[in-house]
């Protein structure tokens, strides 16, 4: 079978790397019996549309940002809360462990799609054209662009500034004409979009770790033989591993490119403590209900060795 795989992002993205990793492993494990075709750039519809298509069984697979699955299966929203994941290792522990397994079960029940692989796209780091940002106080006076995303807007508000929601298609022009001073995105995106042409300062904040799962239509999955199902899941594991490798290699490489293009990269002071406290205290409690209760939150925190929270 030739699986049709919708991919939201363009060539060279982490999503594509996961997709290629999956197709290669699939061909190898099945001895050439199965393969997949990637339809990049959202050619098969917006990321949210592809979830419905896969649920109905008219699309085989899709690679998309996790926040586009949240509307269909709210419990996966736990990975989109600020400062839940503090490192790539945290992300791997959570997604490959029992928590990831439970979320996969949830998406099957809620949305009719099964997560078979995870793309690790990395932290959304902050860039701006005005000044180095090391503390929450440094944010004052900066106009930051964010997507229309409640969690991100709330986070910036917790840090004391009101961000500007702006469509992605207008962002580069917005930064260029200084309608906005800054934005946040993973390193791969900053490089692909050549943001170094219009931005100077990078701050390695870690409030959101971008995770982009590969989902398969549960209906399509159930039509496969037990042997083929095992092959798909195995290929998914290989794709996940390939994604982690891609991120480690790529991020180092990109930081170098950005430095060469005149950007300055800095870390937040005090190991980001102030950012973390403000954001988690203000934002987390608002979303306990939608992710299935505070216990779910604590299960996640315990799994990566952090202290649980109380009401």
């Amino acid at each position: 079978k030739n699986f049709k795989i919708a991919v939201g992002d363009s060539g060279g993205s982490s999503q594509e790397a996961t997709g290629i990793g999956f197709v290669n492993a699939l061909e190898e494990l099945s001895g050439g019996k199965h393969t997949g075709t990637l339809f990049l750039n959202g050619q098969l519809g917006s990321e949210q549309d592809t979830v419905n298509d896969a649920a109905i069984g008219t699309l085989d697979m899709s690679l998309l940002a996790i926040n586009n699955i949240t509307p269909f299966s709210p419990s996966v929203g736990v990975f989109t809360l600020p400062y839940v994941i503090l490192s790539l290792e945290d992300a791997e522990t959570l997604t490959n462990g029992p928590i990831g397994q439970e979320l996969t079960e949830n998406t099957i029940n809620d949305a009719g799609v099964r997560i078979v692989a995870w793309t690790y796209t990395g932290f959304r780091v902050l860039t701006n054209s005005k000044k180095p940002v090391k503390s929450v106080a440094d944010l004052k006076g900066l106009v930051i662009r964010v997507p229309k995303n409640e969690i991100m807007i709330d986070t910036y508000k917790a840090w004391g500034i009101s961000p500007t929601p702006m469509a992605w298609s207008e962002t580069f022009a917005g930064l260029q004409t200084k309608v906005v001073d800054g934005q946040d995105n993973p390193y791969t995106t900053i490089n692909a979009m050549k943001f170094y042409e219009v931005q100077k300062y990078v701050t390695n904040i870690r409030y959101i770790f971008s995770i982009e799962p590969l989902i398969i239509s549960e209906q399509v999955f159930q039509e496969l033989s037990a042997e083929d199902q095992a092959i798909v899941l195995e290929a998914g594991k290989a794709a996940t591993a390939a994604s982690a490798t891609f991120l480690r290699e790529k991020e180092a490489e990109i930081k170098q490119i950005l430095l060469e293009n005149g950007m300055e990269i800095s870390d937040p002071e005090n190991n980001e403590e102030e950012f973390i406290t403000l954001a988690t205290e203000a934002v987390w409690p608002k979303f306990y209900d939608s992710i299935g209760g505070i216990e779910k939150m604590n299960a996640v925190l315990t799994a990566i060795g952090r202290d649980p929270v109380s009401e």
């Binding site: 363009s10 060539g11 990049l40 750039n41 959202g42 050619q43 298609s169 207008e170 580069f172 022009a173 692909a192 050549k194």
Partner: peptide, 21 residues
């Protein structure tokens, strides 16, 4: 045109195309 992004092969050959707005 917004729903019709550049095919990857073309991007490889000619670089990123500007976005349509």
């Amino acid at each position: 045109a917004l729903g019709m992004p550049a095919p990857p092969a073309a991007v490889e050959e000619f670089g990123q195309f500007q976005t349509v707005s």
